[in-house]
Design a protein around this nucleic acid. Structure first.
Ligand code: ZN
Ligand code: ZN
Ligand code: ZN
Ligand code: ZN
Lengths: 143, 143
DNA sequence: ATTCTAAATGAAAATCATTTTCATTTACTA
DNA sequence: TAGTAAATGAAAATGATTTTCATTTAGAAT
């Protein structure tokens, strides 16, 4: 996985630095969605000579290459980063603890067509998120 | 319209100040979606003694009362404010000029049920936005 | 292996929207 | 009319992200 990304980076003309390796390893190793700060913290343990700025810059590249995607946090505004390149999918986010679950099958094609027809917009993409309370936070709340 | 909101504010224990009146008038008068800064700028013309902070605070209240709603800007992150209390609806946003069009009928109930079933989440709400290019920007692009 | 150069890095400063603080003012209630 | 909690605004604080710029370095060329 890491090797594949590294090859892609080289092919696209990006240099492969120890910082980028460290960041990649963190992202690939994690099953969860991480903020730039999270990634910085973890990568820093593995490779001390790394700065938060570099994390931001590397994430930009990975995003541009479609290797990672974003979550808009449940409190609105700030956008967070998440791992896992994959097919078209969306997020279900716990408003309590921030846990993120991916899901596929949004089936928004028809709605998109309708909107195009009605408004004349050329629709390019969509953002869909469900906000709710995850099982463990439900339990915690009911005790 | 303005009067209705004012009554509601009083009923809920909020005081009605000239600043709030000015902000309200701006929001009600506008057909477009405005940022706090936009609203501040306009309200300031009408009533000089007003600060941006008050705009933020008033918008919070109006949001809490469900009288206005938010748009998450197409560039990601920053959240913008928009007018018009209304039924459940979503936004179609032009990635070029920022124009926002409302639409209703998202029909996400079934998907919501499926997700609840599959993940155990108690789904509370959802965020749906379509991003695209509006008719006038399409024209502009093709010239 | 050595050299060369554009790309990458990080510390620090800059941005910029939003929030907090706090002293002062004011809308409403009694 | 007076009393009080709520509201206000100036200024400072926050906090995430971006920019700047001097220095380092990956990878290509020799
Ligand atoms: Zn949770
Ligand atoms: Zn989708
Ligand atoms: Zn447009
Ligand atoms: Zn909906």
């Amino acid at each position: 996985m890491v090797r594949r990304v590294i090859t892609l980076l080289r092919r696209r003309g990006y240099k492969v630095t120890p910082q980028r390796r460290a960041i990649l390893r963190v992202i690939v190793d994690s099953q969860e969605h991480l903020t730039p700060a999270d990634i910085y913290e973890r990568a820093h343990k593995e490779y001390t000579g790394i700065g938060l700025v570099t994390v931001y810059r590397t994430l930009d590249i990975l995003d541009k290459l479609g290797l990672i995607c974003e979550v808009h946090a449940e409190d609105g505004r700030r956008s967070y980063l998440l791992t896992r390149p994959s097919e078209h999918h969306h997020h279900l986010i716990c408003s309590d603890c921030g846990k993120v679950v991916d899901f596929t099958g949004c089936r928004l094609g028809e709605l998109e067509k309708r909107l195009s027809r009605e408004t004349g917009f050329e629709v390019e993409s969509h953002l869909l998120e469900f906000i709710g309370c995850c099982p463990s936070c439900q339990k915690a709340a009911s005790t």
